[in-house]
Nucleic acid binder design. Structure first.
Length: 859
RNA sequence: GCGGACGUGAUGGAACUGGUAGACAUACCAGACUUAAAAUCUGGAGGCCUUAGGCCGUGCGGGUUCGAGUCCCGCCGUCCGCACCA
């Protein structure tokens, strides 16, 4: 028998599906829809194994749901704006657009070679004018509704990429792309008012039941809701007062100082007349924001000499410091310090000799002797030293003190969020231009709809650092749309996370020109039923997309409050790493084993095998999907991606693994193609013996196995347990291989099993499945066949193998009819010789029978 | 520091709501086929003990239960997220 040739077969079936338009999606109110989406790729030039895993998982779901009768939407596009294109332009003198579109063409071809069930008619690229024109419209709608604003603020500045970064893009003080230490600069920036939605975004997390708990938790923490109070401290000798935020208003009587952020307006004001304070603030600014810097930085304060009055006891004066650990962008940029019940405040108080007055008494502590040593007491207890609060516990104290502050007009209950507004200005070329004109007379003027899109100029100069749009000789010069006077365009472009914050909605009507979103179509398809991608987007992209969807719902652009009803985060693809003698990374192709089993490089020098790590170019442990697909075919690559590891955990790439998948591909081919030559033609009448109980034991067992497999794989695919589904396929293949029946009824059963097997693995290996479906004599495309349904009667066995324990230790197994009664099971168990030996003459005290499961004899 | 997840053979991993631990695969071993290798097919296999058989075994220590990988308490270890958030 010849071997299966994936190369010929795969392109043949891809062409057949394409010609038949199998994966083209159309709205159909009469059918239930299912929207499957994988996170769209950045067109870097070539797909990597992570893409193969991501898109294989999505394709299994899409094909499975399609077979289940859903109207499936499964689109693909390109997250095409971004810095790498611009860097390529600088390094290689190619235009970012040319570089990007070439990459898209190459990657589209690679993805198509995987045999994905994508509706390619809906393809979009965010760098395409048709896309970013609509995004500019959205931006202006956000602007007109007050959800976009411009303000001067301290920003994270990446000195290597020469651009501003969002807080979310600063990882441990370093730029997420460049890895350079981020600097602080004060710039005028555009912001999306995501904080307006903090409460909604937080509360709605509870409803996202098909999201991983981990991602919901990460978003919860990121939004960071804190309940507490806003409290005003009167400044001595000044008319104004100082606002602070605290989560512990109950400890107000323990306050011994207040502290300002170095960036607080009052700090700046005081510094004008105080050179020493100026120096102190400058010193704070020099401290980096990196993890170590924060970890090791000493808590330092500068006594301004000013005092504030305690709001509940105006005679009490507290010193006012400027302190390096107080953040300007959380709360009000000022705190009160209660050293007894906050570790940092305690350290600060000890350093500057401030009072430490405990006001919360731990349970069992004596109020007369209780003292704070080196550790603040942060637990619950009863308030003391606190006048009208004395005796209350912490939650009651909080309530009571807020009540009092409110009646005095000195404060109120307040909720703070860690979440900040989303800064989207990027001083780069390859992004969506911000459609606003700056006019000296009129201020910020939105570009009128008739003048959209604001196109990127084709002739930008990438040869010098900085923003090419800003450097362009004429691009920014424009007449003010409002007064006609000479004005200039905003030269910032939008963060590319804006592009991906609404693309799932654009897929519903990718060619619609009248508006960004065709509401009727969006309402049919949205929300995305199953979204699939990496955990690295748990916060950034997923939070922005949720924000956009809520905002757009508010504008009446669409109806769904949430973009993604189901989310699955797949694990990384990892591979062994190696380091040579000079500690340089070595590719697995460059190492071999010597006679002793030790690793050597090609010149025989010793090599250290490192950890199994995420595939990356820098560690030189990548495997090129194109090569793998070229050698083994897409089906084998897909199969390996689904085997062994659960899809949410990491998958280790091994040569043995892909070889094993390849052998199994061939084995399936032989198994089914050989059987196809002997079985009756499709549509042969079902033999009577199947239903009158006269079917032979082996054939019945095969039928049982294949119907059990239907039920199990259906359950496994629904639950994203693809590794288990793969194991079931192996089991059925093994059962099929062991079947030797030659009678007509047996051959009918053999056909049924072959067809079942083929259909069940078709979402995973779609090309091979079509090939075998054809070999089995079918004219139709398998992709149009419904998902197989098990006959319930074949899922229950008539006999059960039960374990028998003596004192909880397994001694024997017995065969019993299904649902045998307890007494029968008990006597069968006690009659077993191994059980008798275990009893060793003792009389059972008690026999526990769990029907169809186990018998436990207790002595 | 705070929050979370996980710990099962040589390896990846199975084990539904507590009920026969190790499915399935990889690697390994043996046999068949072959001049040979590869491929393929058949079979083996948690560890220990001399076998029929027995003892031990899901990171460690305790507990609940007729029965614990699964539940509870306390440790140890690995990984991930956040981190001067008042």
């Amino acid at each position: 028998m010849s071997r299966y040739n994936p190369k010929d077969s795969e392109s043949k079936w891809q062409a057949r599906w394409e010609a038949a338009g199998c994966f083209r999606a159309e709205e159909d109110p009469g059918r239930e829809k299912y929207y499957v989406l994988e996170m769209f790729p950045y067109p870097s030039g070539r797909i990597h194994m992570g893409h193969v895993r991501n898109y294989t998982i999505g394709d299994v779901i899409a094909r499975y749901k399609r077979a289940r009768g859903y109207n499936v939407l499964h689109p693909m596009g390109w997250d095409a704006f971004g810095l790498p294109a611009e860097n390529a332009a600088m390094e290689r003198k190619v235009h970012p657009a040319d570089w990007t579109y070439e990459n898209i063409d190459a990657m589209r071809g690679q993805l198509q070679s995987m045999g994905l069930s994508i509706d390619w008619d809906r393809e979009i690229a965010t760098c395409h004018t048709g896309y970013y024109a609509q995004q500019q419209r959205l931006f202006l709608e956000f602007l007109s509704r007050g959800l976009v604003y411009r303000k001067e603020s301290w920003v994270n500045w990446d000195p290597v990429d020469n651009t501003v970064l969002a807080n979310e893009q600063v990882i441990e003080g370093l730029g997420w792309r460049s890895g350079a230490p981020v600097e602080r600069r004060k710039l005028s920036q555009w912001f999306f008012r995501i904080t307006d939605f903090a409460t909604e975004l937080l509360d709605a997390l509870d409803g996202l039941e098909r999201w991983p708990e981990k991602v919901r938790l990460m978003q919860r923490n990121w939004i960071g809701r804190s309940e507490g109070a806003q409290i005003f401290f009167t400044l001595t000798g000044r008319p104004d007062s100082l606002e602070v935020f605290t989560t512990r208003p109950d400890t107000l009587y323990g306050a011994s100082f207040c502290a300002l952020s170095p960036h607080h307006p009052l700090s700046a004001e005081l510094a004008e007349a105080d050179p020493a304070l100026q120096d102190f603030i400058a010193e704070c600014d020099r401290l980096g924001t990196s993890e170590e810097a924060i970890e090791t930085a000493e808590k330092k304060g500068y006594d301004t000499g000013l005092t504030v009055s305690h709001p509940l006891d105006p005679e009490r004066k507290l010193p006012l410091y400027v302190a390096n650990f107080v953040l300007m962008d959380y709360g009000s940029g000022a705190i009160f310090g209660c050293p007894a019940h906050d570790q940092r405040d305690l350290d600060f108080a000890r350093k500057y000799g401030l009072a430490v007055l405990p006001v919360v008494l731990p349970p069992d502590a004596d109020p007369l002797t209780f003292e704070i040593g080196e550790e603040a007491f942060v637990g619950d207890g009863h308030l003391f030293n606190s006048q009208f609060l004395d005796g209350l516990d912490v939650p009651e104290g909080k309530r009571k003190v807020i009540e009092r502050l409110e009646s005095l007009g000195a404060g109120k209950g307040s909720v703070q969020y860690r979440l900040r507004d989303w800064g989207v200005s990027r001083q780069r070329y390859w992004g969506c231009p911000i459609p606003v004109v700056h006019c000296e007379a009129c201020g910020l003027v939105p570009v009128p709809d008739s003048d959209l899109p604001v196109r990127l100029p084709d002739d930008a100069d990438f040869s010098r650092p900085g923003n090419p749009l800003d450097h362009h000789p004429v691009w920014k010069d424009v007449a003010c749309p409002s007064c006609g006077a000479p004005a200039h365009r905003d030269t910032d472009t939008m963060d590319t996370f804006v592009d991906s914050a609404w693309y799932f909605a654009r897929f519903c009507s990718p060619r619609h020109e009248a508006a960004p979103i065709d509401r009727a179509k969006a309402d049919y398809w949205l929300p995305v039923d199953q979204y699939i991608g990496g955990i690295e987007h748990a916060i950034l992209h997923l939070l922005y997309a949720r924000f956009f969807t809520r905002a757009l719902q508010g504008f009446g652009e669409l109806s769904a409050p949430e973009p993604f009803a189901g989310l699955f985060t797949q694990g990384m693809v990892c591979h062994q790493t190696y380091r040579g003698a000079d500690n340089a990374w070595l590719s697995p192709d460059e190492v071999m084993r010597d006679e002793t089993g030790a690793w050597r490089d090609l010149e025989g020098r010793p090599v250290a095998a490192g950890r199994v790590e995420k595939m990356s170019k820098s560690k030189r442990n990548t495997v090129d999907p194109e090569k793998i697909i070229g050698t083994y075919g897409a089906d084998t690559a897909r199969w390996f991606m689904l085997s062994d590891s659960p899809p949410d955990r990491e998958l280790e790439w091994t040569d043995a693994g892909i070889e094993g998948a390849w052998r199994f591909t061939q084995r399936l081919w032989r198994l089914v193609a050989e059987a196809a030559a002997t079985v009756p033609p499709p549509g042969t009448a079902r033999p009577k013996s199947l239903d009158d109980g006269s079917l032979g034991a082996a054939a019945l067992e095969l039928r049982r196995a294949s119907h059990r497999c239907m039920a199990e794989i259906t359950r496994d695919v629904e639950a994203f347990h693809f590794n288990k589904a793969v194991a079931r396929i192996y089991e059925l293949a093994n059962a099929l291989q062991g079947f030797k029946g030659k009678e007509p009824e047996e051959l009918w059963v053999l056909r049924e099993a072959c067809e079942t097997l083929t259909r069940l693995f078709s979402p995973m290996m779609p090309h091979l499945a079509e090939e075998l479906w054809q070999a089995l004599g079918h004219q139709s495309l398998l992709v149009d066949q419904p998902w197989p349904e098990a006959e319930p009667g074949l899922l229950v066995d008539s006999t059960i193998t039960m374990g028998v324990q003596v004192n909880g230790k397994l001694r024997a197994t017995i065969e019993l009819p299904r649902d045998a009664d307890r007494a029968f099971a008990e006597s069968a168990a006690l009659a077993d010789p191994a059980v008798r030996r275990g009893l060793d003459g003792r009389t059972p005290r008690k026999v526990i029978v769990v029907p169809n499961r186990i018998v436990n004899v207790v002595v």
